[in-house]
Write a protein that binds this DNA or RNA. Sequence first.
RNA 1: GGUGGCGUGUCCGAGCGGCCUAAGGAGCACGCCUCGAAAGCGUGUGUGGAAGAAAUUCCACCGUGGGUUCAAAUCCCACCGCCACCGCCA
Length: 420
Amino acid sequence: MIDLKVLRENPELVRNSQRVRGEDPSIVDQLLVADETRRQAIVDFEALRAEQNILSKSVGSAKGDEKSALLENAKDLAGRVKAADAIRAEAESAAHQFLLKISNLIDSAAPVGGEADFVVLEHVGTPRDFSQSGFEPKDHVELGKILKAIDTERGAKVSGARSYYLTGVGALLEFALVNYAISSATRAGFTPVIPPVLVKPAAMEGTGFLGQAAENVYHLEEDDYYLVGTSEVPLAAYHMDEIVDSLPLRYAGYSSCFRREAGTYGKDTRGIIRVHQFDKVEMFVFCKLEDAAAEHQRLLQWEKDFLNAMEIPYRVIDVASGDLGSSAIRKFDCEAWIPTQGTYREVTSTSNCTEFQSRRLNIRYRDENGTKPVATLNGTLVAIPRMIVAILENHQNADGSVNVPLALRPFLGVDTLVPA
RNA sequence: GGUGGCGUGUCCGAGCGGCCUAAGGAGCACGCCUCGAAAGCGUGUGUGGAAGAAAUUCCACCGUGGGUUCAAAUCCCACCGCCACCGCCA
Protein backbone atom coordinates (compact mmCIF):
# COMPACT_ATOMS: atom_id res chain seq x y z
CA MET A 1 0.00 0.00 0.00
CA ILE A 2 1.06 3.56 -0.55
CA ASP A 3 1.81 6.19 2.09
CA LEU A 4 -1.41 7.93 3.15
CA LYS A 5 0.56 11.10 3.89
CA VAL A 6 1.66 11.34 0.26
CA LEU A 7 -1.90 10.91 -0.86
CA ARG A 8 -3.16 13.66 1.46
CA GLU A 9 -0.43 16.07 0.47
CA ASN A 10 -0.34 15.36 -3.24
CA PRO A 11 -3.46 13.55 -4.43
CA GLU A 12 -2.87 14.56 -8.04
CA LEU A 13 0.37 12.59 -8.08
CA VAL A 14 -1.55 9.48 -7.07
CA ARG A 15 -4.40 10.14 -9.50
CA ASN A 16 -1.91 10.44 -12.31
CA SER A 17 -0.19 7.20 -11.35
CA GLN A 18 -3.54 5.42 -11.43
CA ARG A 19 -4.31 6.95 -14.83
CA VAL A 20 -1.10 5.89 -16.57
CA ARG A 21 -1.56 2.39 -15.19
CA GLY A 22 -5.01 2.30 -16.74
CA GLU A 23 -6.59 2.08 -13.30
CA ASP A 24 -9.32 4.08 -11.64
CA PRO A 25 -8.13 7.50 -10.38
CA SER A 26 -11.42 8.20 -8.59
CA ILE A 27 -10.45 5.81 -5.77
CA VAL A 28 -8.09 8.57 -4.65
CA ASP A 29 -10.98 10.90 -3.94
CA GLN A 30 -13.08 8.19 -2.35
CA LEU A 31 -10.16 7.45 -0.07
CA LEU A 32 -9.70 11.13 0.84
CA VAL A 33 -13.31 11.30 1.98
CA ALA A 34 -13.07 8.00 3.83
CA ASP A 35 -9.88 9.14 5.54
CA GLU A 36 -11.54 12.34 6.75
CA THR A 37 -14.46 10.30 8.12
CA ARG A 38 -12.05 7.91 9.75
CA ARG A 39 -10.11 10.61 11.55
CA GLN A 40 -13.25 12.28 12.86
CA ALA A 41 -14.50 8.91 14.11
CA ILE A 42 -11.21 8.37 15.94
CA VAL A 43 -11.41 11.78 17.60
CA ASP A 44 -15.00 11.11 18.70
CA PHE A 45 -14.21 7.70 20.09
CA GLU A 46 -11.05 8.74 21.90
CA ALA A 47 -12.75 11.66 23.64
CA LEU A 48 -15.49 9.37 24.97
CA ARG A 49 -13.00 6.69 25.90
CA ALA A 50 -10.86 9.14 27.86
CA GLU A 51 -13.96 10.28 29.72
CA GLN A 52 -14.86 6.68 30.48
CA ASN A 53 -11.38 5.88 31.78
CA ILE A 54 -11.63 8.75 34.28
CA LEU A 55 -15.16 7.88 35.36
CA SER A 56 -14.36 4.19 35.77
CA LYS A 57 -11.52 5.04 38.09
CA SER A 58 -13.74 7.15 40.31
CA VAL A 59 -16.26 4.30 40.60
CA GLY A 60 -13.68 2.13 42.30
CA SER A 61 -13.14 4.48 45.21
CA ALA A 62 -16.75 5.71 45.57
CA LYS A 63 -19.19 4.38 48.21
CA GLY A 64 -22.93 4.05 48.74
CA ASP A 65 -25.34 6.45 47.01
CA GLU A 66 -22.50 8.26 45.37
CA LYS A 67 -21.35 5.01 43.82
CA SER A 68 -24.73 4.00 42.43
CA ALA A 69 -25.14 7.45 40.89
CA LEU A 70 -21.74 7.14 39.25
CA LEU A 71 -22.57 3.65 38.08
CA GLU A 72 -25.67 4.85 36.33
CA ASN A 73 -23.66 7.50 34.53
CA ALA A 74 -20.95 5.03 33.67
CA LYS A 75 -23.41 2.56 32.24
CA ASP A 76 -24.79 5.15 29.88
CA LEU A 77 -21.30 6.24 28.89
CA ALA A 78 -20.25 2.65 28.25
CA GLY A 79 -23.04 2.34 25.70
CA ARG A 80 -21.95 5.49 23.91
CA VAL A 81 -18.30 4.38 23.91
CA LYS A 82 -19.30 1.08 22.38
CA ALA A 83 -21.30 2.78 19.65
CA ALA A 84 -18.48 5.22 18.89
CA ASP A 85 -16.01 2.35 18.76
CA ALA A 86 -18.16 0.50 16.24
CA ILE A 87 -18.34 3.60 14.04
CA ARG A 88 -14.58 4.01 14.33
CA ALA A 89 -13.88 0.38 13.39
CA GLU A 90 -16.21 0.65 10.42
CA ALA A 91 -14.61 3.91 9.23
CA GLU A 92 -11.09 2.53 9.61
CA SER A 93 -11.90 -0.59 7.68
CA ALA A 94 -13.62 1.38 4.90
CA ALA A 95 -10.63 3.70 4.50
CA HIS A 96 -8.25 0.73 4.58
CA GLN A 97 -10.16 -1.05 1.82
CA PHE A 98 -9.74 1.96 -0.47
CA LEU A 99 -6.08 2.21 0.45
CA LEU A 100 -5.49 -1.42 -0.53
CA LYS A 101 -7.00 -0.76 -3.95
CA ILE A 102 -4.46 1.85 -4.93
CA SER A 103 -1.41 0.59 -6.83
CA ASN A 104 2.13 1.68 -6.10
CA LEU A 105 3.14 5.14 -7.36
CA ILE A 106 4.62 4.64 -10.79
CA ASP A 107 8.21 5.70 -11.41
CA SER A 108 8.18 8.79 -13.62
CA ALA A 109 11.00 7.21 -15.63
CA ALA A 110 8.84 4.25 -16.67
CA PRO A 111 7.43 4.50 -20.21
CA VAL A 112 3.75 5.42 -20.30
CA GLY A 113 1.33 3.18 -22.16
CA GLY A 114 0.14 -0.40 -22.58
CA GLU A 115 1.81 -3.74 -23.18
CA ALA A 116 3.17 -2.71 -26.59
CA ASP A 117 4.64 0.59 -25.40
CA PHE A 118 7.77 -0.79 -23.80
CA VAL A 119 11.15 0.79 -24.50
CA VAL A 120 14.04 -1.39 -25.61
CA LEU A 121 17.05 -0.52 -23.46
CA GLU A 122 19.62 -2.71 -25.15
CA HIS A 123 20.31 -5.74 -27.30
CA VAL A 124 22.96 -8.22 -26.20
CA GLY A 125 24.31 -10.82 -28.60
CA THR A 126 23.17 -11.50 -32.15
CA PRO A 127 20.45 -13.97 -33.13
CA ARG A 128 22.00 -16.89 -34.95
CA ASP A 129 21.51 -17.07 -38.71
CA PHE A 130 20.39 -20.65 -39.29
CA SER A 131 20.43 -20.29 -43.09
CA GLN A 132 24.16 -19.86 -42.77
CA SER A 133 24.34 -23.02 -40.66
CA GLY A 134 22.43 -24.72 -43.46
CA PHE A 135 19.38 -26.06 -41.59
CA GLU A 136 15.97 -25.10 -40.32
CA PRO A 137 15.89 -24.81 -36.53
CA LYS A 138 13.59 -27.22 -34.73
CA ASP A 139 11.42 -25.91 -31.97
CA HIS A 140 11.92 -26.96 -28.36
CA VAL A 141 9.04 -29.43 -28.45
CA GLU A 142 10.65 -31.35 -31.27
CA LEU A 143 14.11 -31.11 -29.73
CA GLY A 144 12.67 -32.18 -26.39
CA LYS A 145 11.25 -35.27 -28.04
CA ILE A 146 14.45 -36.12 -29.90
CA LEU A 147 16.51 -35.75 -26.74
CA LYS A 148 13.84 -37.48 -24.63
CA ALA A 149 14.06 -34.41 -22.38
CA ILE A 150 10.52 -33.01 -22.48
CA ASP A 151 7.30 -35.03 -22.60
CA THR A 152 4.27 -32.81 -23.07
CA GLU A 153 1.99 -35.59 -24.32
CA ARG A 154 2.19 -37.58 -21.11
CA GLY A 155 2.06 -34.29 -19.21
CA ALA A 156 -1.32 -33.61 -20.80
CA LYS A 157 -2.48 -37.19 -20.16
CA VAL A 158 -1.73 -36.97 -16.46
CA SER A 159 -2.21 -33.31 -15.59
CA GLY A 160 -4.00 -31.71 -18.53
CA ALA A 161 -2.99 -28.92 -20.85
CA ARG A 162 0.10 -26.84 -20.03
CA SER A 163 1.73 -29.70 -18.16
CA TYR A 164 4.90 -31.61 -18.94
CA TYR A 165 7.46 -34.06 -17.69
CA LEU A 166 11.16 -33.27 -17.73
CA THR A 167 12.94 -36.56 -18.24
CA GLY A 168 16.53 -37.69 -18.60
CA VAL A 169 18.71 -34.79 -19.75
CA GLY A 170 15.69 -32.50 -19.33
CA ALA A 171 15.60 -33.28 -15.62
CA LEU A 172 19.39 -33.07 -15.41
CA LEU A 173 19.26 -29.71 -17.17
CA GLU A 174 16.98 -28.39 -14.44
CA PHE A 175 19.33 -29.54 -11.69
CA ALA A 176 22.30 -28.02 -13.51
CA LEU A 177 20.55 -24.69 -14.04
CA VAL A 178 19.42 -24.57 -10.42
CA ASN A 179 22.84 -25.48 -9.09
CA TYR A 180 24.54 -22.94 -11.32
CA ALA A 181 22.02 -20.27 -10.26
CA ILE A 182 22.26 -21.02 -6.56
CA SER A 183 26.03 -21.18 -6.55
CA SER A 184 26.42 -17.87 -8.39
CA ALA A 185 23.79 -16.25 -6.17
CA THR A 186 25.55 -17.52 -3.07
CA ARG A 187 28.81 -16.11 -4.35
CA ALA A 188 27.08 -12.75 -4.85
CA GLY A 189 26.03 -12.76 -1.20
CA PHE A 190 22.50 -14.14 -1.43
CA THR A 191 21.21 -16.54 1.19
CA PRO A 192 19.79 -19.59 -0.56
CA VAL A 193 16.26 -20.46 0.59
CA ILE A 194 13.79 -23.25 -0.07
CA PRO A 195 10.51 -21.64 1.00
CA PRO A 196 7.03 -23.06 1.52
CA VAL A 197 4.86 -22.79 -1.59
CA LEU A 198 1.61 -23.22 0.31
CA VAL A 199 0.83 -19.95 2.07
CA LYS A 200 -1.86 -18.28 4.16
CA PRO A 201 -4.01 -15.43 2.80
CA ALA A 202 -2.01 -12.78 4.70
CA ALA A 203 1.14 -13.59 2.71
CA MET A 204 -0.71 -13.51 -0.59
CA GLU A 205 -2.57 -10.31 0.28
CA GLY A 206 0.59 -8.70 1.59
CA THR A 207 2.55 -9.18 -1.59
CA GLY A 208 -0.27 -7.72 -3.66
CA PHE A 209 -1.30 -10.83 -5.56
CA LEU A 210 -4.94 -10.87 -4.55
CA GLY A 211 -5.75 -7.71 -6.50
CA GLN A 212 -5.47 -7.63 -10.28
CA ALA A 213 -3.47 -10.91 -10.31
CA ALA A 214 -6.00 -12.89 -8.24
CA GLU A 215 -7.43 -14.80 -11.18
CA ASN A 216 -4.06 -16.42 -11.80
CA VAL A 217 -3.66 -17.77 -8.29
CA TYR A 218 -4.58 -21.30 -7.20
CA HIS A 219 -6.65 -21.25 -4.03
CA LEU A 220 -7.30 -24.32 -1.88
CA GLU A 221 -10.84 -23.62 -0.81
CA GLU A 222 -11.09 -26.37 1.80
CA ASP A 223 -8.19 -25.06 3.88
CA ASP A 224 -7.96 -21.44 2.71
CA TYR A 225 -4.38 -21.81 1.52
CA TYR A 226 -2.84 -20.49 -1.66
CA LEU A 227 -0.28 -22.04 -3.99
CA VAL A 228 2.26 -19.35 -4.77
CA GLY A 229 2.92 -18.22 -8.33
CA THR A 230 6.46 -17.23 -7.38
CA SER A 231 8.68 -17.59 -4.34
CA GLU A 232 8.54 -13.79 -4.16
CA VAL A 233 5.49 -14.41 -1.95
CA PRO A 234 7.02 -16.54 0.82
CA LEU A 235 10.30 -14.60 0.58
CA ALA A 236 8.58 -11.24 1.04
CA ALA A 237 6.46 -12.62 3.88
CA TYR A 238 9.53 -14.18 5.53
CA HIS A 239 10.05 -11.00 7.57
CA MET A 240 6.37 -10.17 8.00
CA ASP A 241 5.64 -8.22 11.22
CA GLU A 242 9.33 -7.79 11.95
CA ILE A 243 11.71 -4.91 12.52
CA VAL A 244 14.82 -6.11 10.69
CA ASP A 245 18.17 -4.89 11.87
CA SER A 246 20.59 -5.19 9.01
CA LEU A 247 20.04 -4.13 5.41
CA PRO A 248 20.26 -5.11 2.66
CA LEU A 249 18.97 -8.67 3.06
CA ARG A 250 19.34 -10.73 -0.11
CA TYR A 251 17.66 -14.10 -0.58
CA ALA A 252 17.66 -16.53 -3.49
CA GLY A 253 14.58 -18.74 -3.30
CA TYR A 254 14.19 -21.97 -5.22
CA SER A 255 10.64 -23.20 -5.48
CA SER A 256 7.86 -24.53 -7.62
CA CYS A 257 5.52 -21.88 -8.97
CA PHE A 258 1.86 -22.40 -9.82
CA ARG A 259 -0.16 -20.31 -12.26
CA ARG A 260 -3.71 -20.73 -13.46
CA GLU A 261 -2.98 -18.85 -16.69
CA ALA A 262 -6.57 -17.70 -16.83
CA GLY A 263 -7.36 -15.65 -19.90
CA THR A 264 -4.50 -17.09 -21.96
CA TYR A 265 -6.55 -19.70 -23.82
CA GLY A 266 -4.98 -20.34 -27.18
CA LYS A 267 -1.80 -18.47 -26.30
CA ASP A 268 1.45 -20.43 -26.31
CA THR A 269 -0.42 -23.72 -26.21
CA ARG A 270 2.49 -25.59 -27.73
CA GLY A 271 5.46 -26.51 -25.59
CA ILE A 272 6.56 -25.30 -22.20
CA ILE A 273 6.65 -21.52 -22.66
CA ARG A 274 3.47 -21.07 -20.64
CA VAL A 275 2.73 -23.77 -18.06
CA HIS A 276 0.76 -24.24 -14.85
CA GLN A 277 3.71 -25.44 -12.80
CA PHE A 278 7.43 -24.77 -13.04
CA ASP A 279 10.49 -24.27 -10.89
CA LYS A 280 12.31 -21.02 -10.53
CA VAL A 281 15.20 -19.41 -8.68
CA GLU A 282 14.11 -15.97 -7.58
CA MET A 283 16.18 -13.16 -6.10
CA PHE A 284 14.50 -11.13 -3.40
CA VAL A 285 15.96 -8.09 -1.63
CA PHE A 286 14.99 -6.00 1.38
CA CYS A 287 16.85 -2.67 1.42
CA LYS A 288 16.51 1.00 2.31
CA LEU A 289 14.25 3.04 0.05
CA GLU A 290 17.10 5.33 -1.00
CA ASP A 291 19.10 2.29 -2.20
CA ALA A 292 16.25 0.64 -4.11
CA ALA A 293 16.88 2.12 -7.57
CA ALA A 294 20.56 1.12 -7.47
CA GLU A 295 19.62 -2.33 -6.19
CA HIS A 296 17.18 -2.68 -9.08
CA GLN A 297 20.08 -2.12 -11.49
CA ARG A 298 22.13 -4.75 -9.64
CA LEU A 299 19.31 -7.29 -9.94
CA LEU A 300 19.07 -6.56 -13.65
CA GLN A 301 22.82 -7.04 -13.97
CA TRP A 302 22.68 -10.44 -12.24
CA GLU A 303 19.93 -11.46 -14.66
CA LYS A 304 22.04 -10.34 -17.60
CA ASP A 305 25.07 -12.18 -16.20
CA PHE A 306 23.00 -15.35 -16.17
CA LEU A 307 21.85 -14.96 -19.77
CA ASN A 308 25.37 -14.05 -20.86
CA ALA A 309 26.63 -17.23 -19.20
CA MET A 310 23.98 -19.20 -21.10
CA GLU A 311 25.26 -17.55 -24.30
CA ILE A 312 21.79 -16.55 -25.37
CA PRO A 313 21.01 -13.43 -27.40
CA TYR A 314 18.51 -11.21 -25.62
CA ARG A 315 17.20 -7.73 -25.21
CA VAL A 316 16.26 -5.74 -22.12
CA ILE A 317 13.01 -3.79 -22.07
CA ASP A 318 11.65 -1.12 -19.77
CA VAL A 319 8.07 -2.31 -19.25
CA ALA A 320 5.34 0.28 -19.82
CA SER A 321 3.16 1.67 -17.02
CA GLY A 322 -0.01 -0.18 -18.01
CA ASP A 323 1.75 -3.55 -17.93
CA LEU A 324 3.23 -3.37 -14.42
CA GLY A 325 2.04 -5.36 -11.43
CA SER A 326 0.27 -3.32 -8.77
CA SER A 327 3.26 -3.56 -6.42
CA ALA A 328 5.92 -2.38 -8.88
CA ILE A 329 6.93 1.17 -9.71
CA ARG A 330 9.20 -0.01 -12.51
CA LYS A 331 9.99 -3.31 -14.19
CA PHE A 332 12.70 -4.53 -16.54
CA ASP A 333 12.25 -7.71 -18.53
CA CYS A 334 15.00 -9.72 -20.17
CA GLU A 335 13.71 -11.30 -23.35
CA ALA A 336 15.59 -14.18 -24.95
CA TRP A 337 15.69 -14.70 -28.68
CA ILE A 338 13.59 -17.72 -29.66
CA PRO A 339 14.71 -18.78 -33.16
CA THR A 340 11.59 -20.73 -34.17
CA GLN A 341 9.33 -17.85 -33.17
CA GLY A 342 11.61 -15.25 -34.70
CA THR A 343 11.07 -13.02 -31.72
CA TYR A 344 12.21 -12.16 -28.22
CA ARG A 345 10.29 -13.74 -25.33
CA GLU A 346 10.35 -12.85 -21.65
CA VAL A 347 12.59 -15.17 -19.64
CA THR A 348 13.38 -13.08 -16.59
CA SER A 349 11.94 -9.97 -14.98
CA THR A 350 12.87 -7.65 -12.15
CA SER A 351 10.60 -5.23 -10.26
CA ASN A 352 11.17 -2.43 -7.78
CA CYS A 353 8.27 -2.50 -5.31
CA THR A 354 9.64 0.23 -3.00
CA GLU A 355 7.61 0.26 0.26
CA PHE A 356 4.39 -1.09 -1.21
CA GLN A 357 4.73 -4.68 0.01
CA SER A 358 6.49 -3.88 3.26
CA ARG A 359 3.68 -1.55 4.37
CA ARG A 360 1.17 -4.33 3.88
CA LEU A 361 3.41 -6.95 5.44
CA ASN A 362 4.56 -4.63 8.23
CA ILE A 363 8.30 -4.99 7.64
CA ARG A 364 10.42 -2.12 8.97
CA TYR A 365 13.91 -1.12 9.99
CA ARG A 366 15.10 1.33 12.58
CA ASP A 367 17.08 4.50 11.96
CA GLU A 368 17.78 7.69 13.95
CA ASN A 369 14.21 8.95 13.47
CA GLY A 370 12.39 5.77 14.40
CA THR A 371 11.11 2.97 12.22
CA LYS A 372 10.54 3.08 8.47
CA PRO A 373 9.16 0.58 5.98
CA VAL A 374 11.88 -1.24 4.01
CA ALA A 375 11.93 -1.37 0.23
CA THR A 376 11.50 -4.71 -1.53
CA LEU A 377 12.70 -5.82 -4.96
CA ASN A 378 12.53 -9.06 -6.83
CA GLY A 379 14.11 -10.53 -9.92
CA THR A 380 14.15 -13.86 -11.71
CA LEU A 381 17.51 -15.54 -11.78
CA VAL A 382 16.22 -18.47 -13.78
CA ALA A 383 12.75 -19.75 -14.67
CA ILE A 384 13.48 -23.32 -15.70
CA PRO A 385 11.15 -24.12 -18.62
CA ARG A 386 11.74 -20.91 -20.54
CA MET A 387 15.48 -21.14 -20.00
CA ILE A 388 15.42 -24.71 -21.29
CA VAL A 389 13.51 -23.53 -24.36
CA ALA A 390 16.07 -20.80 -25.00
CA ILE A 391 19.05 -23.12 -24.55
CA LEU A 392 17.68 -25.93 -26.71
CA GLU A 393 16.56 -23.70 -29.55
CA ASN A 394 19.59 -21.41 -29.66
CA HIS A 395 22.29 -24.03 -29.24
CA GLN A 396 20.89 -26.80 -31.45
CA ASN A 397 22.77 -28.53 -34.24
CA ALA A 398 21.44 -29.97 -37.50
CA ASP A 399 21.25 -33.51 -36.07
CA GLY A 400 19.13 -32.43 -33.10
CA SER A 401 22.00 -32.41 -30.63
CA VAL A 402 22.47 -29.36 -28.43
CA ASN A 403 25.69 -27.69 -27.32
CA VAL A 404 25.79 -27.02 -23.60
CA PRO A 405 26.89 -23.48 -22.66
CA LEU A 406 30.39 -23.49 -21.17
CA ALA A 407 29.29 -22.24 -17.78
CA LEU A 408 26.79 -25.04 -17.41
CA ARG A 409 29.12 -27.88 -18.36
CA PRO A 410 30.65 -28.41 -14.90
CA PHE A 411 27.13 -28.64 -13.51
CA LEU A 412 25.78 -30.95 -16.18
CA GLY A 413 28.84 -33.09 -16.76
CA VAL A 414 28.54 -33.16 -20.56
CA ASP A 415 29.42 -30.78 -23.39
CA THR A 416 26.66 -31.83 -25.74
CA LEU A 417 23.17 -33.22 -25.37
CA VAL A 418 22.78 -36.00 -27.92
CA PRO A 419 19.61 -37.58 -29.30
CA ALA A 420 18.72 -40.65 -27.23
C1' G B 1 -6.48 -37.73 16.50
C1' G B 2 -6.70 -37.61 22.35
C1' U B 3 -5.25 -35.40 27.05
C1' G B 4 -2.70 -31.76 29.86
C1' G B 5 0.35 -27.30 30.31
C1' C B 6 1.89 -22.69 28.35
C1' G B 7 1.75 -17.93 25.11
C1' U B 8 3.28 -10.71 28.95
C1' G B 9 7.93 -5.30 26.43
C1' U B 10 14.60 -6.43 22.89
C1' C B 11 15.15 -11.02 26.14
C1' C B 12 14.09 -13.65 30.92
C1' G B 13 10.11 -13.24 34.15
C1' A B 14 6.12 -11.54 38.06
C1' G B 15 1.12 -10.20 37.92
C1' C B 16 -4.75 -13.84 37.74
C1' G B 17 -10.97 -7.74 38.10
C1' G B 18 -9.87 -1.03 39.89
C1' C B 19 -3.07 1.34 43.39
C1' C B 20 -0.86 -2.02 35.78
C1' U B 21 0.89 4.72 34.43
C1' A B 22 2.98 -3.81 33.75
C1' A B 23 7.09 -5.40 39.47
C1' G B 24 12.02 -7.44 39.30
C1' G B 25 16.25 -8.84 36.46
C1' A B 26 19.27 -8.97 31.95
C1' G B 27 20.62 -6.31 27.69
C1' C B 28 21.35 -1.58 25.29
C1' A B 29 22.39 4.00 25.36
C1' C B 30 24.13 8.20 28.03
C1' G B 31 26.32 10.28 32.49
C1' C B 32 29.25 9.90 37.24
C1' C B 33 33.51 7.35 39.24
C1' U B 34 38.57 5.74 36.82
C1' C B 35 45.05 6.90 33.92
C1' G B 36 41.83 3.40 31.13
C1' A B 37 38.49 -0.55 31.91
C1' A B 38 35.47 -3.83 34.96
C1' A B 39 32.43 -3.40 39.10
C1' G B 40 29.28 0.15 41.35
C1' C B 41 25.86 4.33 41.14
C1' G B 42 22.33 7.50 38.42
C1' U B 43 19.18 8.50 34.13
C1' G B 44 16.81 6.78 29.93
C1' U B 45 15.13 2.73 27.00
C1' G B 46 8.56 -0.49 22.79
C1' U B 47 4.89 -0.20 18.64
C1' G B 48 0.85 2.03 16.11
C1' G B 49 -2.69 6.00 15.89
C1' A B 50 -5.26 11.00 16.84
C1' A B 51 -4.98 16.37 18.05
C1' G B 52 -1.25 20.40 17.89
C1' A B 53 3.20 25.22 14.76
C1' A B 54 5.66 22.95 18.80
C1' A B 55 6.44 21.55 23.84
C1' U B 56 3.00 18.16 24.78
C1' U B 57 -1.59 15.69 25.61
C1' C B 58 -4.74 11.71 24.61
C1' C B 59 -6.16 6.63 22.63
C1' A B 60 -4.98 1.55 21.58
C1' C B 61 -1.67 -2.72 22.12
C1' C B 62 -0.01 -8.51 27.52
C1' G B 63 -0.81 -14.90 20.93
C1' U B 64 -5.54 -13.64 17.51
C1' G B 65 -10.78 -12.65 17.41
C1' G B 66 -15.32 -12.26 20.08
C1' G B 67 -18.00 -11.79 24.89
C1' U B 68 -19.10 -10.48 30.29
C1' U B 69 -18.36 -5.79 33.30
C1' C B 70 -18.94 1.01 35.02
C1' A B 71 -13.81 -1.17 34.61
C1' A B 72 -10.11 -7.00 31.63
C1' A B 73 -3.07 -8.84 31.00
C1' U B 74 -6.47 -10.82 34.84
C1' C B 75 -13.10 -13.88 34.04
C1' C B 76 -15.85 -16.68 29.79
C1' C B 77 -15.94 -18.68 24.54
C1' A B 78 -13.62 -19.81 19.87
C1' C B 79 -9.30 -20.03 17.04
C1' C B 80 -3.90 -20.09 16.23
C1' G B 81 0.99 -21.35 17.87
C1' C B 82 4.55 -23.82 21.21
C1' C B 83 5.77 -27.84 24.75
C1' A B 84 4.86 -32.68 27.07
C1' C B 85 2.68 -37.44 27.16
C1' C B 86 -0.59 -41.15 24.71
C1' G B 87 -2.49 -43.21 20.01
C1' C B 88 -1.63 -43.79 14.69
C1' C B 89 1.97 -43.73 10.63
C1' A B 90 7.12 -43.90 8.79
